[in-house]
Nucleic acid binder design. Structure first.
Lengths: 135, 135
DNA sequence: AATAGTTACTTGCAAAAAGCAAGTGACTAT
DNA sequence: ATAGTCACTTGCTTTTTGCAAGTAACTATT
């Protein structure tokens, strides 16, 4: 069979870019995975260890969807033992301003929120992040 | 028990501002209503007329939640017949940068998206928006 | 060489939310 | 009176979420 699949049967709701974004990332978990990727997390277990506690089946589903959307790429990042990890594509990294805007709004308008670092997620992952356990 | 209720029984998933944002606006419809409000729409019927076609029960639910979150305010905007409309609060208007970032990302990475106007939603709703029907 | 442990998932199922259609009440225009 | 509009509400089916348990591959331990 020449063409296995046309592209995506998921019909877009409207030509509005906001609507298009929400079709891809409009739920309570997807952007948290992207946030973790900005923080330098790459492995399945690291995403699971985030304080929000994403259910494992949803994590697998979101990673698959993010991959299908071209926002993340799965690739080996270590051998012996061979391990595969997830990284942001260019398309995914371009979500940085979205996360930054959310962080700014949240810090201003949601009491009790705080970032671990001062750095906005648009910055590259800090090298000296200690692994005191998680997060 | 000193206080009758702290504030909201909806438990926050983590102190992360991204997580806090997604608890409020992390779904496929809420930000579309906010977008419409930025476009100057105020009435229930105007939100319904948007091309995405939000189900009426979800629209009512989202408006109630946005009100409870302090993002929109319901208030009379006309009398005889008395009509109530929805407007963005300061907190709601501060979502402008989030929408702008989403628009920028969508226009860059989602093929086939287009904005009706050139104006980004961060600008205040234009006064001279003609009511040629919708949008 | 079994045994146990870690990692990265998959599967099953109950509960919640989404989505659709129809209905309701207040007011208005004919 | 009758019909129409507006802003919702209600009922019901489908889809998604969330939780727990299970599985496969590989590694470290005894």
């Amino acid at each position: 069979m020449p063409g296995p699949r046309p592209k995506k049967p998921s019909l877009r709701r409207s030509p509005c870019p906001v609507s298009g974004c929400l079709d891809l990332i409009g739920d309570r978990w997807t952007l948290l995975v992207v946030r973790d990727l900005f923080w330098g997390k790459r492995r399945y277990g690291e995403f699971q260890a985030s304080p929000e506690g994403i259910p494992t089946n949803l994590l697998a589903d979101r990673l698959e969807r993010l991959g299908a959307a071209g926002i993340v790429a799965r690739r080996p990042y270590q051998r012996n033992p061979p391990r595969y990890g997830y990284t942001l594509t260019r398309k995914g990294r371009d979500l940085g301003p979205v996360l930054s805007a959310l962080v700014a709004w949240g810090k201003r308008h949601i009491p009790g929120t705080r970032t671990l670092d001062e750095a906005a997620p648009v910055s590259r992952p800090s090298r000296k992040s200690r692994r005191t356990g998680r997060a």
